[in-house]
Design a protein around this nucleic acid. Structure first.
Length: 905
RNA sequence: GCCCAGUUGGCGCAGUGGUAGCGCGUUCCCUUGACAUGGGAAAGGUCAUAGGUUCAAAUCCUAUACUGGGCACCA
């Protein structure tokens, strides 16, 4: 076997670099991840498209590892998996990145102009996509790379237009003047969920507004004194006794000297501040509503660039910050400022640039959400859509139920153009004014410039200069990638998808909107399940961010520890509802595990000489198996059953942990050690059986671990595959088998447990007494007649080898033990090591006394328990008998220890 | 402010009523032919606090504290 020879020169340690690149290209050449490559049943999922803002970070690595785990797992189960790759144009985020680049070149978006800017974005995007897709390949992602999509490519443009058109036709779109969240830095409106709230230090300033009639008036409390320039009223609670006499009276607005009324409105909370609120309808959402209720004017004093407008009189032209400073100074000077108290409060900031959001009045496009959200709520309630972990379902439902209209227009350049055209004849448009300030426009929806105006016949049109929220195209992603609005073969086969894997930070921004749009546009939930994972934090639990400088580059980690190690580390910490604390320690664990697997395979190969080159299933017939074989096969079955269950519930960390534990603690530490005796022994039948079991479990593990660690498993499989019962070109094309159905006898099960216990306990004895591990010692054993003792006698050679014993001799109850010997006491056995010269008996009695102490405290608890009549009466009979048995065992252990101590003293 | 989750050995986490576990780290022994990215052994926790339910509580209930998250924000 040539591959065998090659394998013999395998390195002692697994070196990922050599292996990974090779498999990435071999998988690509073979096209094994392309859709339509197998099977009847399909399984599809779409990647959350990363923004083309740069390289992928560790969070992307987590997200895509989880998806790849699922995709590979489903392929191993024989499904035709279609996992669609792609990227998102990323709207504001990407435009911001480009603007920063331009700044370093002393250029700017405006200086460049819209066309040149678009070209610049184009080439940036191409580079960025290349980087991202390259990284996904390196991560081992089994995406169908022939299907790469981009939220702004031609097909996705079709989908965006179709969606927009339908929303328009159905009356879900409108252009209206609202108080929107305006980011002064980005120069655009944002939707409500694009605003984050941050606790910031601030003050509550108390300002006196005097009565026109000369009375003292009242004091208002505000966190934003600069907006007072736009005040049009002061509101108090209608039942607030302090202000009854003032309601309806006029006040002088300080500094401005405008006359404003005192109004009564139930919105006001009398217990906060002074109980009197200045009302600025043009710059505060609540005041806006009060303004509506009381028909108050709206005076805009802050402009879209964040500066005070002409309405601000002497303050015009100042920035928000400067104006605040100046106004406070002036108020102080003129005696209007009565008090300044510290008042930390949350301010809205832009989710992209953290600039403080300014609520400003402007004309924007909105999608009416009410009717769109209720089908999504229904889908959740009826179980057609499930969220894992379930704890996200309530916040998701609540958000949908309280949804507000979605502002979809953005005053930026990078994005899908709004397909609305305005006849210049019918709409008097002043080209110099900001578009979002032009009221009451009448437009038509059209992909390209309309022929002529249906009203006046004019051929002069202007397209809406704004672009759509980037999440608008993202919302269509699960079906736009399959060609919607065309419903071709791919759409029919792969839509709806099965699962969407994403982080909780975009449940509302993305998941909810996909559900709503999917239901509205295709009549189906776009995915029936969503797995929500946490975010990766730094060692101190802080969110990773470029500004904090605590970001981890996944490529660096892959370079250092191997991709499989990174994948293992991420998955084994991805517990439902929990964030991941990143540390290199966990990568070390991953690397070590990879190496362990590697060396298990090396061990198998090193012992393959002279053994059959094919596995015969009859070699696994029950009568050929010995106790250890039965034990490991049965453990293997139990583990794979349990892992399957975990994966079904998306408990991937549990699954990873169980596979790790099985391979390392049971397979390597016990089975392989036992198998060594047989593989190096002279019984050729036993040798063959041991090898067959070894290789069967190992190949099974390669398949089970493949979704977790695709590279090392593929590399090993390529060498071992001839021993697979049905060898495949690649692991992904192989079929998983849980091994022969084995039912372990009670004797086998208890016996193996006792064997392990006996060996561990003797090792502990040796270590405690400082007996060198290499020294072969004679061991004597006393025991009651039991299942366990029968088992140990039958498997004496294992016991001796694992204990490092010259021999283990069983004594009958009448035979006496050498007076001065050390002993290991297990529930069923006492093992004696009669090596006078080697044993420090002082140390030994110390050791025994310590153990006796433990046993006594255990016994105390147990005695108390079984002597409690209430316990006997109320606990289940099974439990009581179990406890009694345990009590007996511990009692026997105690008396044996005491006896030993007596002899020693 | 309301709601949800978490609080377990130095660190990261399992553990939903019946004698507290895992990984990493630490200490000691071992470089014997799979693996020192290894093997063996050991130390280390009154399971945040206070009550309660129960024969029995890390586990169920209540309150408090702290942490994280979601929602709403009072100017």
């Amino acid at each position: 076997m040539t591959e065998n020879t090659q394998a013999k020169i395998w390195d002692k340690a697994y070196i990922p670099k050599d292996v990974e690149d090779r498999w990435v290209s071999r998988w690509a050449e073979a096209g094994i991840f392309n859709a339509h490559s197998r099977g009847e049943k399909s399984y599809s999922l779409v990647i959350p498209p990363p923004n083309v803002t740069g390289a992928l970070h560790i969070g992307h690595a987590l997200n895509n590892t989880i998806q790849d785990f699922l995709a590979r797992k489903e392929r191993l189960l024989g499904k035709d998996v279609c996992w669609v790759p792609g990227t998102d144009h990323g709207g504001i985020a990407t435009q911001t990145v480009m603007e920063k680049i331009l700044k370093t070149e002393n250029a700017s978006r405006r200086a460049l102009g819209r066309k040149a800017f678009a070209q610049r974005m184009e080439s940036w995007t191409i580079d960025c996509k290349k980087t991202i897709l390259g990284q996904l390949k390196k991560l081992g992602c089994s995406l169908d790379f022939s299907r790469e999509a981009f939220t702004m490519d031609e097909k996705r443009k079709n989908a965006v237009f179709a969606a927009f058109k339908k929303l328009w036709d159905d009356g879900f779109l409108y252009r209206g003047e609202r108080l929107v969240n305006w980011c002064v830095r980005c120069g655009t409106a944002l939707s409500d969920i694009e605003v984050e709230h941050e606790e910031r230090k601030g003050n509550l300033w108390h300002i006196r507004y005097k009565e026109v009639s000369g009375g003292p008036g009242l004091v208002v409390a505000t966190t934003r004194p600069e907006t007072m320039l736009g005040d049009v009223a002061v509101a108090v609670h209608p039942e607030d006794k302090r202000y009854q006499s003032l309601i309806g009276k006029k006040l002088f607005l300080p500094l401005v000297n405008r006359e404003i009324p005192v109004i009564a409105d139930g919105f006001v909370d009398s217990s906060f501040g002074t109980g009197a609120v200045k009302v600025t309808p043009a710059h505060d959402p609540n005041d806006f509503e009060m303004g509506e209720r009381h028909q108050l004017p709206r005076i805009k004093v802050i402009s879209f660039s964040g500066k005070i407008t002409e309405e601000g009189g002497v303050y015009a032209g100042l920035s928000r910050e400067e104006a605040r400073k100046k106004i406070l100074q002036d108020l102080e000077l003129k005696g209007f400022l009565e008090k300044t108290e510290p008042h930390p409060h949350a301010v809205g900031v832009c989710y992209r640039c953290q600039e403080i959001i300014e609520p400003l009045l402007s004309w924007q496009w909105f999608v009416k959400m009410g009717e769109l959200s209720s089908p999504a709520v229904k889908a959740l309630d009826e179980g057609r859509f499930k969220i894992y972990p379930k704890s996200w379902e309530n916040p998701y439902r609540d958000w949908l139920k309280n949804i507000r209209d979605w502002c979809v227009s953005r005053q930026i350049w990078w994005g899908h153009e709004i397909p609305v055209w305005y006849c210049l004849q019918c709409n008097p448009i002043d080209e110099n004014s900001s578009f979002h300030q032009i009221p009451n426009l009448k437009g038509v929806v059209s992909r390209g410039k309309p022929e002529n105006c249906r009203v006046c016949g004019s051929v002069n049109f202007l397209q809406d200069p704004d672009v759509l929220d980037t999440w608008f195209s993202s919302a269509l992603w699960p079906f736009s990638v399959f060609g919607w609005p065309e419903m071709g073969e791919d759409f029919k086969r792969y839509y709806p998808t099965q699962i969407l894997v994403t982080g909780y930070e975009i449940i509302y921004l993305w998941v909810a909107r996909m559900q709503m749009m999917g239901l509205y546009l295709t009549g189906n939930v776009p995915f029936s399940e969503s797995f929500i994972h946490g975010i990766v934090r730094d060692r101190k639990g802080k969110k990773m961010s470029k500004s904090l400088g605590n970001v981890v580059d996944p490529l660096q980690m892959m370079e250092k520890y191997g991709t499989d190690a990174l994948r293992f580390s991420l998955i084994s910490q991805a517990r439902p509802g929990k964030d991941i604390v990143f540390s290199e320690d966990s990568l070390i664990a991953g690397r070590n595990f990879t190496n362990k697997l590697w060396n298990t395979a090396r061990f198998a190969l090193m012992n393959a000489a002279g053994l059959p080159e094919k596995i015969e299933t009859q070699d696994l017939a029950l009568e050929k198996l010995d106790a250890a074989d039965v034990w490991i096969l049965s453990e293997y079955q139990e583990m794979s059953r349990s892992v399957k269950e975990d994966i079904k519930n998306y408990n991937l960390a549990d699954a990873a942990e169980k596979m790790y534990g099985f391979l390392w603690d049971r397979f390597c530490d016990w089975y392989v050690e036992i198998a060594k005796l047989r593989l190096q022994g002279s019984d050729s039948e036993s040798k063959k059986t041991a090898f067959t079991v070894l290789i069967t479990v190992l190949i099974g593990m390669l398949k089970m671990l493949h979704p977790l660690m695709p590279f090392v498993t593929e590399e090993i499989y390529s060498v071992l595959k001839d021993w697979d019962t049905s060898p495949a070109d690649f692991l992904i094309n192989s079929s998983f088998s849980p091994g022969p159905q084995i039912k372990m006898t009670e004797e086998n099960q208890k016996g193996m447990a006792a064997l392990i216990e006996a060996v561990s306990s003797l090792r502990s004895l040796r270590s405690g007494l400082g007996i060198p591990p290499g020294l072969k010692i004679p061991v004597l054993c006393k025991s009651e007649k039991s299942l366990e003792s029968g088992f140990l006698k039958k498997n004496l050679s294992y016991l001796e080898a694992l204990m490092g014993a010259q021999s283990v001799s069983f004594l009958n109850s009448t035979e006496s033990v050498p007076a001065r010997s050390a002993a290991a006491v297990t529930p069923h056995f006492t093992f004696y090591v009669p090596l006078e010269g080697l044993i420090d008996f002082k140390k030994e009695s110390e050791r025994l006394r310590k153990e006796l102490g433990k046993v006594e405290s255990d016994l105390n608890k147990l005695s108390q328990k079984i002597s409690d009549p209430n316990y006997i009466l109320k606990a289940s009979p099974e439990d009581v008998s179990e406890t009694r048995l345990l009590h007996q065992t511990v009692l026997s252990k105690k008396s044996r220890l005491e006896e030993l101590l007596k002899v020693l003293s």
